[in-house]
Design a protein around this nucleic acid. Structure first.
Length: 348
DNA sequence: TGCCTACCTCTATCTGTGGT
DNA sequence: ACCACAGATAGAGGTAGGCA
């Protein structure tokens, strides 16, 4: 029989919609499986489905990730056997093949071939997989159902509710920590973008604002920037990426505590301009700018000088690179990011 | 026939720029 | 001031060709 090639995107649909004969799901090692939950589809780096729940023949529940491939050999050719982010995989699902997948941790996980357990023919499955999934949720078709004015009112309400939630979150945090520290953690979180937000916040907790401001006391601005860069990059474990010999010397003199594991930082699909090391340098310039008056005091002053719009505040949080990169000037913190900081952190 | 490699395309997120 | 869009990025997927 000639081999049929099946694209991975079709396998994703088959797995997501579970277009399989439940009783015929048997792995390469002969174990019968039952899928309780196929997992959440992941379009980022890492396994294709996150948080799947699978029951084995003897009723044991396995929770973990699922990786899909056209061929069993793709596991190795894609380098997943060397990538620790695949260590939570509990099952490899392929169209054809019966080779177990070896994780970076050394553990082996079973492989399930969909070819032997498809619900109907391949053509049937292709037809079902092409059908749009029925959208659900309260937002589906809302624009048509509600009309422009009602939609506008709802969006205004949602925006105000979002603002109130943020305000409440900051107020609660300020009950436990100093307002200036809460502000610092918020700004750092915003500089981490969606992918490194929690690591930036953790860094802000490891290196509290009071400690950083203490190191800046009595130093000229340029010296403050150097010290802040060394401390932030050193603690983040990113000195090699963004620093130089002088910064390493400062970090070895002033830094106490262990540096974070540099492999924790997520850089998948992150442009070089958005690399955590670059944003930490931006944070160093920003903190040095506010160091003399104190971060929270200076921010309160700025907000007190309120004028309509937010652009007058944006510029206070923008940081230009001291030297042009790639022949053209680029920012360490651009207008877009500065505006996010103002809207999501400063104003609430 | 199966495996490996190289090359091309696709994708999601963010910045910068130009138009309104 | 705001919005839309182009451009940049790099891992993953798709495909073709070579080799045993």
């Amino acid at each position: 029989m000639s081999k049929v090639k099946v694209a991975e995107c079709l396998l994703v649909q088959v797995w997501k919609r579970q277009l399989v004969e439940k009783g015929r799901m048997v792995t390469d090692s002969g174990e019968r499986l039952q899928v309780i939950y196929p997992g959440r589809e992941n379009k980022d780096s890492g396994p294709d489905f996150i948080g799947a729940i699978i029951s084995t023949a003897d009723g044991v529940l396995l929770r973990g990730d699922v990786e899909l491939h056209s061929r069993a050999g793709d596991w190795k050719s894609h380098g997943h056997n060397r990538d620790p982010s695949y260590n939570d995989v509990i099952l490899q699902v392929v169209w054809d093949g019966d080779r177990a997948a070896e994780l970076q941790s050394g553990k082996k996980v079973p492989t399930l071939s969909l070819r032997h357990c498809l619900k109907g023919s391949l053509d049937d499955v292709r037809y079902w997989a092409d059908l749009p999934m029925v959208p659900s949720g309260p937002c589906y078709n809302a624009g048509q159902r509600l009309g422009d004015s009602e939609m506008g009112r709802l969006l205004d309400e949602a925006g105000e509710e979002r603002f109130r939630l943020k305000t409440g979150h900051f107020a609660e945090a300020m009950g436990k920590r100093l307002p200036s520290q809460v502000l610092f953690e918020g700004i750092m979180g915003a500089l981490g973008y969606s992918k490194n937000k929690e690591f930036f916040e953790e860094l802000a907790r490891c290196l509290p604002l009071a400690v950083l401001e203490g190191f800046c006391l009595g130093k000229p601005p340029q010296e403050q920037v150097k010290v802040l860069k060394a401390l932030l990059l050193g603690r983040a474990g990113l000195l090699v990426v963004g620093g130089d010999g002088e910064l390493e010397r400062i970090w070895s003199c002033l830094g106490d505590g262990e540096a974070m594991d540099s492999s924790l930082w997520r850089v998948f699909r992150v442009r070089p301009e958005n690399h955590p090391a670059r944003r930490l340098v931006g944070a160093a310039y920003l903190l040095a700018r506010f160091a003399e008056a104190g971060l929270s005091e200076r921010v309160l002053q700025l907000v007190g000088q309120a004028r309509p719009g937010t652009s007058w505040l944006d510029s206070s949080f923008m940081v230009s690179a001291p030297e042009p990169c790639s022949g053209s000037e680029c920012s360490l913190i651009g207008q877009g990011r500065a505006r996010e900081i103002v809207i999501n952190i400063i104003l609430p």
